[in-house]
């Protein structure tokens, strides 16, 4: 198991290198460079070419692309992401500041959609063909096909504006001092973010469950005289869990992408909101760092999923 994890981490490293290179290349290809962005438009005419060149040299921009990439990379490995162009704050500070909010939202959505998705999928499979099953199927289809921002806006309209049950947005109430004080704030964005994933997990869990219920080892388990609940949970569900975990792993990037939108809709002060601000303000170093971190998050997530699948399914460990 340990060698499996180590091998899996080793595969991740070259992937990270390639992606970091692509991100850096992408930045290189955007029009203008840092210097042209640092000079306010009113001054463009008065600044001479020599002054620009001097600035470039002082920032190291006259070096070759590869040299610059290398120095950027070595800094990042040491945790130094450089500074935001607007305000000059260290990017690592910004990220660390915003990360908890995003993690909170994503983990809420992940836990909710995994548990509720599995439970509903299981129910749907066990009551196949019933009214409950059909209703859940319809809800599931709506869930995966309607865009999140739309859900978000509708949810705000109904639950925050019309009914006034929950706050419109933001993360903290003014009187914030314990977690439960700001719990009402996470309900709407958390649920909306998890909706699509819940629907996906549910549909997948249903079909995985139907598949495993029809397998022969279920008949063996029944022939042993095991009670129904044990056959369903220990034998059918346990086997159905592997594809579901893999699906959740595949869907994690959409959770990360979705959180950008949801954070914007609900003004949730996480990395996604910061990212939108950075894009608007052409704050390229910040955009680049966040993009790279999201990639890292996705790779990390898929690593975790692989380890989890190997733990759940002994056959995976062979390969």
């Amino acid at each position: 198991m340990l060698t499996f994890i180590l091998r899996r981490i080793l595969i991740t490293i070259p992937m990270l290198l390639i992606i970091s290179f692509l991100v850096y290349l992408g930045l290189e290809l955007t029009p203008g460079d840092a210097v042209s962005h640092m000079i306010s438009p009113d001054l463009t005419n008065t600044v001479t070419e020599e002054q620009m060149a001097a600035m470039r040299e002082s920032l190291g921009l006259d070096k070759s692309f590869i040299e610059r990439y290398w120095s950027w990379l070595t800094h990042i490995v040491q945790g130094d992401f450089g500074h935001s162009l607007s305000g000059g704050v260290a990017i690592s500070t910004i990220v660390l500041d915003r990360l908890p909010a995003t993690l909170e939202l994503s983990i809420f959505a992940l836990v909710f959609s995994t548990i509720i998705g599995c439970v509903l999928g299981l129910l749907s499979a066990l009551k196949r063909g019933s009214a409950t099953d059909s209703a859940l199927t319809v809800v599931g289809m709506l869930g995966v096909s309607i865009p999140e921002f739309f859900f978000g806006l509708v949810a705000i309209l109904i639950f925050a504006l019309n009914l006034g049950w929950l706050p419109v947005g933001g993360r903290l109430l003014p009187s914030y001092d314990s977690y439960w004080d700001h719990f009402p704030n996470i309900i709407l964005p958390g649920l909306v973010l998890s909706l699509m994933m819940t629907a996906g997990v549910m549909r997948y869990a249903r079909s995985a469950m139907l598949d495993s219920l029809s397998r022969e080892f279920i008949r063996t388990a029944r022939a042993k005289g095991l009670p129904q609940w044990r056959i369903i949970l220990y034998h059918a569900f346990r086997v159905a869990l592997t594809p579901v975990v893999v699906l959740i792993g595949f869907r994690l990037p959409t959770l990360i992408g979705g959180s950008v939108i949801i954070e914007a809709v609900f003004q949730w002060p996480g990395i996604g909101l910061e990212f939108i601000g950075a894009v608007r303000g052409s704050d390229y170093p910040l955009v680049m760092s966040i993009a790279l971190l999201s990639v890292l998050a996705v790779l990390l997530a898929s690593l975790i999923v692989d380890v989890l699948t190997a733990m759940i399914d002994p056959r995976v460990r062979l390969g």
Binding site: E216, F217, H235, P314
Partner: peptide, 25 residues
Amino acid sequence: EMRSIRGEEIAMIFQDPMTALNPVY
């Protein structure tokens, strides 16, 4: 009652041992 007979008093083995065992246990 049926469950207590199954496996305890009347047991059964199946044609295909490849699929009759649960792969994850």
